[in-house]
Amino acid sequence: MEMHEFHSFLAQRLALADAILIDRICIERQLASARVLKAYTSRHEGLPKYSSGEMTFVGTPGSWGNPTLSANDKAVAFIGYIESAQGYYQHHWLAHFLVIVHGGQEYALATWNTHARNWWPASFHDQCIIPDSSRPWRVGIPFSLFEKHLLQLIDEPAPNIR
């Protein structure tokens, strides 16, 4: 996956869901509750508002390489409100970046693609890590760079996604 594909991937997620930094995740079956640390966007917000500090949502199902959130994870998750269901739902596929600490630094971790290193802008390549050599598909980028890139995308016009 090349840089334009990563850009497109994130842009598609942002067109369909809000980017929310969450932690203190509690999972019961597919229902999750979490503390909202930061809402990067609120285009797909319902009630209660993200500013309430807590939210409950239906998490993405795990299958065929689609990772799920786990208890106590910290992540940037793509979540939106579905009016007809009166609730929040995590995007259905590849719907979050875990936030991990490795060597004292926070990283946004893509957990689903052995080629994720190629997604980032070329200037990020040397800063990407594989924190666990037994899981080479998990690629991390310094969180500050990931967040900066995410915020730049948010400022761009949303793609027309159906």
Rank of each mutant, 00 (worst) to 15 (best):
M1I: 02
H4K: 06
S8I: 09
F9N: 11
L10A: 09
L10T: 03
A11Y: 09
A15C: 07
A15K: 06
I20N: 00
I22P: 05
I22A: 07
I22F: 04
D23F: 01
R24S: 02
I25W: 04
I27H: 10
E28A: 15
L31H: 12
A32V: 06
A34L: 02
V36C: 04
V36F: 00
Y40V: 03
T41W: 07
R43I: 01
R43Q: 13
H44D: 05
E45D: 08
Y50C: 03
S51A: 05
M55C: 12
T56Y: 02
F57H: 04
P61V: 11
W64K: 13
G65K: 01
N66T: 05
L69Y: 00
L69N: 06
F78S: 04
F78Y: 02
Y81M: 10
I82A: 12
S84I: 15
A85R: 15
Y88W: 10
Y89P: 02
Q90W: 08
A95R: 08
H96T: 01
V99F: 00
H102M: 03
G103H: 04
Q105N: 05
Q105D: 09
Q105F: 00
Y107T: 07
A108N: 04
T114L: 13
T114W: 14
W120C: 05
W120N: 01
C128A: 15
I129G: 06
D132C: 07
I141Y: 02
P142S: 00
L145K: 01
L150T: 12
L151R: 14
Q152E: 15
I154R: 09
N160K: 15
R162H: 13
